[in-house]
Design a binder for these strands. Structure first.
Length: 498
RNA sequence: GGCGCCAUACCCAAGUGGUUAAGGGACGGGUUUGCAAAACCUGUAUGCGGCGGUUCGAAUCCGCCUGGCGCCUCCA
């Protein structure tokens, strides 16, 4: 299936047509987390954005090899372990387990390979040795530094020039911008033997070593948060290209935008304003968060206001609308041809048929244009509205199936490319209710009893009592919905209270 | 000081040279309903931070200005 797929490349600062190195195959490396604390929703955005990238590339027929690493040996981890007296590697192992739980809870596809630093020390030492041999690195008192002056195009990713950097002390380095490949061991720190004595890897080298080991010296796409462009990714490029003598290290560099707080500041562990993924998933289904992230373009900054749940409530309501529209369409029957139904049931039938038929092309055109998920979702909501509009017709339920069939196929595309609508409507609604009730501190049995009472009152045409019960439920944030086939209820959204 | 990015309605957010400026929320009116809710219909930017310029034509390109953010130190 040949198609034009376009992608913004940080390296060239342009949107480019994507062509993988090897026909039909894509190698993708994503900088995962440094595991010394739980992931917050800023990490969640990167996780979710690249999950969408992997899903969509696969949906488009590419065989994607997806590598996402753990940095489990690092200054921050050592510092965190020192505070609790825990062994640094035990601490990082603990947070790796928690990260995996979060990833599963978010509904992320599993990486093909999930390497970590502590099991790649040999590859790292080999790479550092090569850099020393080739004259790109030098050792000083057990620490090995990369020499930025040894690479003429150092700074090509971030546009930085070595002499323009605002730098710290030169210390024992030749140039203030030189960075550590291997750090000599200090007492009490985890360390491994090396040609330069006991020590541990510097911050950037692990990604160079692990990406080349699992994807090759030159691979297709390297991803990460925008805040990693410099110095992390810049330094990865320098190390990899100098060690291997090949370039580019990665042919396309993708960076997701950051979550910003009301002050405009980004969310970050170091800012002390992080909001945990676990806290959020206790209250909302993962797909609501996924929809929230994908409503805006992955490169834009995304506002997050922890003071109100309005954003998540809005996303949850939008998602529920999609699930319900799909449910409505699935419930339709009929054996005629789509043309017959469209001719018999009028403009709304024809419109839902035509929108369904053109959906895939419009949806994919948006997704293939640098992952324009916002536009793809816009197209999806148009389709949902057309379904609901058509569903208002008396004969839609009995005869509508043929004209909504293309729309239902379209929803499958949404699932495969974006990971939305991945569960049954019933399971989704149950999860929403359970999580929202938990957050509100309301018992489900209590609600169900009140609904039984109200149904009886309605059967008796005791409207005053029925309304009184509804008011009582309303006070608990429960909204009652009478339907032809019974009664349903939902949690009123926080934003509706304002 | 250096390198980059952003500014679209009350809010979120697509659109980056040419028909009526997507989509969602909020709010008003309506259909429906015992009353509601949901759903659907309908209204709400002659306007795209400001000022100039290029062009037959600009939210879209160029310049300046204003406001804001990221990176240069750990960060998705």
């Amino acid at each position: 299936m040949p198609h034009d797929f376009r992608l913004y490349n940080t390296l060239t600062r342009k949107v480019e047509t994507f062509a993988p190195l090897h026909e039909g195959k894509v190698g993708l490396y994503l900088c995962g987390n440094t595991v010394y604390s739980d992931a917050h929703i800023g990490h969640g955005r990167a996780m979710m954005v690249f999950d969408m990238v992997v899903r969509h590339l696969r949906a488009r027929g590419w065989d994607v090899r997806f590598v996402r690493n753990f940095t489990d040996v690092d200054d921050k981890i050592i510092a965190a372990a020192a505070e609790t007296g825990e062994d640094p590697l035990a601490l990082s192992a603990r947070f790796i387990d928690r990260y995996r739980e979060d990833a599963a809870a978010l509904g992320l596809v599993e990486p093909t390979v999930e390497p970590k630093v502590s099991t790649h020390i040999d590859a790292i030492i080999d790479m550092v040795s090569k850099l020393v041999e080739r004259g790109h690195a030098y050792e000083n008192e057990g620490t090995v530094w990369f020499s930025v002056e040894s690479k003429a195009d150092y700074g090509k990713l971030s546009g930085q020039k070595v002499d323009e950097l605002r730098s710290a002390d030169v210390g024992s380095k030749r140039n203030a911008a030189d960075f550590a490949l291997w750090k000599g061991a200090k007492p009490g720190e985890p360390s491994w033997d090396s040609p330069w004595g006991p020590g541990r890897p510097g911050w950037h080298i692990e990604c160079s070593a692990m990406s080349s080991k699992h994807l090759g010296e030159v691979f297709d796409i390297h991803g990460g948060g925008l805040d990693l462009v410099f110095p992390h990714h810049e330094n990865e490029i320098a190390q990899s290209e100098c060690a291997h003598g090949t370039e580019p290290m990665a042919r396309y560099w993708m960076h997701n935008g950051l979550l910003t707080m009301p002050s405009g500041q980004k969310m970050g562990k170091s800012k002390g304003n992080a909001f945990g993924i676990r806290d959020l998933l206790a209250q909302y289904p993962a797909e609501a968060l996924r929809l929230y992230y994908l409503q805006s373009h992955y490169r834009s900054p995304l506002p997050w206001d922890p003071a109100t749940g309005a954003q998540m409530d809005e996303s949850l309501a939008m998602l529920a609308r999609l699930y319900e529209a799909r449910e409505v369409a699935e419930a339709m029957g009929g054996e005629e041809s789509a043309e017959e139904v469209a001719a018999a049931l009028g403009d709304d039938a024809r419109r839902v048929l035509e929108l369904g038929q053109s959906f895939e092309e419009r949806f994919l055109a948006a997704m293939d244009d640098d992952f324009n998920t916002a536009q793809a979702l816009g197209v999806t909501f148009e389709l949902a509205r057309a379904i609901n509009r058509f569903a208002n017709h008396k004969k839609a339920k009995k005869r509508g199936a043929p004209v909504v069939a293309p729309a239902l196929k379209g929803f499958q595309q949404l699932t495969s490319s974006m990971g939305l609508l991945g569960m049954s409507t019933q399971a989704f609604l149950d999860e929403v209710k359970a999580k929202r009730l938990q957050a509100l501190g309301v018992e489900r049995s209590e609600i169900e009893q009140l609904l039984v009472d109200r149904t009886q009152a309605r059967a008796d045409k005791d409207w005053a009592r029925a309304d009184a019960i509804r008011d009582e439920l309303e006070a608990k944030s429960i909204v009652v919905m009478d339907r032809a086939d019974g009664v349903d209820w939902k949690i009123r959204l926080v934003s509706a209270e304002a």
